[in-house]
Simulated scan of single mutants.
Amino acid sequence: MTKIENRIKVAPKDTIRQGWVNRLSPDFAWPYLQLMRADRPIGVWLLLWPCLWSIALASHWQYWQPENWRFYLPNLGLMGLFALGAYVMRGAGCVVNDLADRKFDAMVERTKGRPLPSGRVSVLQAFLFLGALCLIGLAVLLQMNDFTIWLGVGSLALVAIYPFMKRITYWPQITLGLTFNFGALMGWSAVTGGLEAPALLLYVGGIFWTLSYDTIYAHQDKEDDILIGVKSTALKLGATTPKWLAGFFILMIGCFATAGFMAGTGAGFYIGLALVAGHALWQLKTLDIDNGEICLRLFKSNQRLGLLLFLSILAGHYI
Rank of each mutant, 00 (worst) to 15 (best):
Y72V: 04
F208L: 13
H60P: 02
Y270N: 06
P198M: 03
Y162L: 07
F180T: 03
R110F: 01
V121R: 08
P66L: 10
S122E: 06
L84S: 03
A56G: 08
V88H: 08
M79R: 01
I228A: 08
A197D: 01
L151H: 04
W53C: 04
Y63A: 09
Q283K: 08
R114H: 12
G183M: 05
L281M: 14
M36L: 11
N97Q: 04
T265A: 14
L284P: 11
W64Q: 11
P163K: 05
L287N: 08
I216P: 13
L296H: 10
D105C: 02
P41I: 07
A160Q: 07
F71I: 01
S54N: 06
L76Y: 09
M1S: 15
T175H: 01
L76C: 03
V159M: 14
R23E: 14
R7Q: 10
T215M: 12
M186S: 11
I174T: 14
D39N: 12
Y63Q: 10
W30P: 07
G316C: 07
E293I: 02
G93A: 03
H317P: 00
N68A: 14
G247W: 13
A239K: 15
A11Y: 06
S118N: 10
G119R: 08
K3A: 14
L195K: 05
L308S: 05
D290Q: 14
I216E: 12
L227V: 13
N181S: 13
G278Q: 10
N145G: 12
I253W: 11
V96K: 00
I207A: 04
G206E: 08
L227A: 15
G80I: 04
M36I: 14
G43I: 04
Q62F: 01
F208P: 11
G131T: 10
L46G: 08
C94R: 00
D39R: 04
N75G: 00
I136C: 13
L178D: 06
Y203D: 07
K285P: 00
L33T: 03
S312N: 07
F182R: 00
W244E: 14
I168T: 06
T111H: 03
A257W: 03
G43P: 11
V108L: 02
S118G: 03
I161C: 09
Y203L: 06
